[in-house]
Amino acid sequence: MYDFNYKRASSVDEASSSVSNADEGKFVAGGMTLLPTLKQRLAMPSDLVDLADIGELVGITVDSGSVTIGAMTPHALVHASDDVKNAIPALSKLAGLIGDPMVRNRGTIGGSISNNDPAADYPSAVVGLGATVHTNKREIAGDDFFTGMFETALEEDELVTKVIFPTPEKAAYMKFPNPASRYAVVGTFVSQGPQGTRVAVTGAGPYVFRQSDMEAALEANFAPESVESIKQDDADLNSDIHASAEYRAHLVTIMAKRAVAEANG
């Protein structure tokens, strides 16, 4: 790897100012995507500011209407939490499908959504449940947080502190994983609850998006048959060695149908 500066921040404010004072600063959470990225020099920040010592960023709180997950909470904790399993089983399941056990012990929700990989799992839950992303500066609605491939509404020195998920009446996540990387070739998160009826799709496009035709059909009747004949337009979908845009479009419908069936129990 190339040489860079490394600093451990002891507070959110210190982390933020360290990144703004650097030539090109970058926060490191679990590092499960960032370190491989640095190895390949796909990104070459001058300074890494490690968030691992900021204890307030780790933790899960569940109350009657929502589940709050601290930005530095690893996927393994979200997956294993009985409180999350009871409140939003789909969220627990999603966390357990990310990467592999070792990756889940290090990777965090804050890192995942801030990186906004087109095939990451968590963005679909943030949009699919209508979550709110809290940062050191403001609150951002989940629908406004993801703005492009690897792009978010975050400013350079802004960091996610926690994500608050409203508890849905029903929800499910269905994913067609790439067999090697476990990233989503297509993942569909469906829910019905205080945030309305939602269908959020990851893996298929440049970044997570809502499938409004399916949402309207499910609003009328939340049943697998409602979505099975709705075709996803493949015009703006990803096409690579793993799957063509046409195949991904096909998978959006299949995954949505299966997710609705699972959400209905």
Binding site: R8, G31, L35, A76, D100, M102, V103
Partner: peptide, 28 residues
């Protein structure tokens, strides 16, 4: 060396971690 194969797995504070995808300084 790309955190896929798991040959580098060690335990940090009792949890399996891929040691090719964590800096020595992060383990201080």
């Amino acid at each position: 060396d790309t955190s896929q194969c798991g040959a580098c797995t060690v335990h940090i504070d009792g949890l399996p971690i891929k040691s090719c995808t964590i800096l020595a300084r992060q383990v201080e």
